[in-house]
């Protein structure tokens, strides 16, 4: 871990001011991913601004009947919040399927969204990785790729996004609220928040330099059955091979987003319209452009079967 200087922000305003004037600064909240990566020098900020003391840890109702989730709300608290459990069960379920009790107690809403990939080549600083070191190449292509992306990947990167929470947010049509260093606010639909790798896999989100997440908002409850089905080799404390987040209405309509298949939570809205016809047409649409590796082609079959199970559960 490279040396850095450290400051505690006392308020959001204070944090913004500090970030604006310090090159190489990063904010730290839960730290469960950032410190992990800093120890390996995959991340090497020169300055850390501790934002744990500045608030942004509330969950409030919005005027539109939805919820606004502060950027610093811990995963445990979000999953356990009464309104979330009642109206956005998909989000609770996705959070609870991720990590461990200890990690969820620290990890924040914004930090979870900004998690970086778990591609083992990204994690090994001795190996080429375009995401870690732009232009160095992708050693995962042609390498060990069982966990990696089957769709939306590029010749530069086949990493997946590891978050369960983000899959739920994608299905829930969440909006990421941000401000930039000049105080300009933006509301970024979750669909646009995470990027595909393209030629610049190091650029993972729509955030511009200095732009910061303040909250995630959810539209008013969509009703329906909320199911998050995560598939993994071990029963807990493991990243998804694939996951399916779905909201299914009584009439069989609904929405679906996939985890573990792409560089971002994977949802293609027109595929939702096929839900009443079953899992196969939905997945065929969602993964129409899939280009799996020999090691992960099973994910295409697996995710279809998982969705079929989800739909059966929704009908039951």
């Amino acid at each position: 871990m490279k040396a850095f200087s450290y400051q505690r922000a006392t308020s959001p305003m204070d944090a913004a001011a500090k970030a604006t004037v310090t090159p190489g600064a990063r904010f730290i909240a839960g730290g469960t991913n950032l410190l992990d990566l800093m120890k390996l020098e995959i991340e090497a900020p020169t300055h850390l601004i501790d934002v744990n003391g500045i608030g942004l840890d509330k969950i409030e109702k919005t005027e539109e009947g939805g919820l606004r989730i502060g950027a610093l709300v811990r995963n445990t608290d979000l999953a356990a919040h009464e309104d979330v459990r009642r109206d956005y069960g998909l989000l609770s379920r996705a959070l609870l399927a991720g990590a461990s009790g200890q990690l969820r107690n620290k990890a924040t809403t914004a930090g979870n969204l900004l998690q970086r990939t778990r591609c083992p080549y990204f994690y090994d600083t001795q190996q080429p990785c375009n995401k870690r070191k732009p232009g160095s190449g992708c050693s995962a292509i042609g390498g060990v790729s069982r966990q990696l992306a089957v769709v939306g990947a590029s010749p530069a990167c086949i990493a997946t996004h590891p978050s369960d929470m983000a899959v739920a947010l994608r299905a829930l049509d969440a909006v990421v609220e941000t401000v930039d260093a000049k105080g300009m606010a933006r509301a970024i639909p979750i669909a646009d928040f995470h990027r595909l790798p393209g030629e610049t896999p190091d650029v993972e989100t729509a955030l511009t330099p200095g732009e910061l997440i303040t909250a995630v908002t959810l539209p008013k409850p969509a009703g329906g059955k909320h199911i998050y089905h995560k598939v993994r080799d071990r029963a807990s404390y493991a990243f998804a091979l694939v996951s399916v987040g779905a909201i299914v209405q009584k009439d069989g309509s609904g929405r679906v987003a996939l985890g573990g298949v792409a560089h971002k939570p994977w949802r293609v809205e027109p595929a939702d319209a096929l839900l009443r016809r079953g899992a196969k047409p939905v997945i065929e649409h969602l993964l129409a452009d899939a280009q799996p590796t020999a090691e992960n082609s099973f994910k295409v079959t697996l995710v279809e079967r998982t969705l079929a199970a989800v739909l059966a559960e929704a009908r039951a």
Binding site: R118, P120, Y123, Q147, D233, R234, A235, S236, Y237, A238
Partner: peptide, 8 residues
């Protein structure tokens, strides 16, 4: 990434 059994 090297998974060993957990409680569950």
């Amino acid at each position: 990434s090297y998974e060993v059994p957990v409680h569950a």
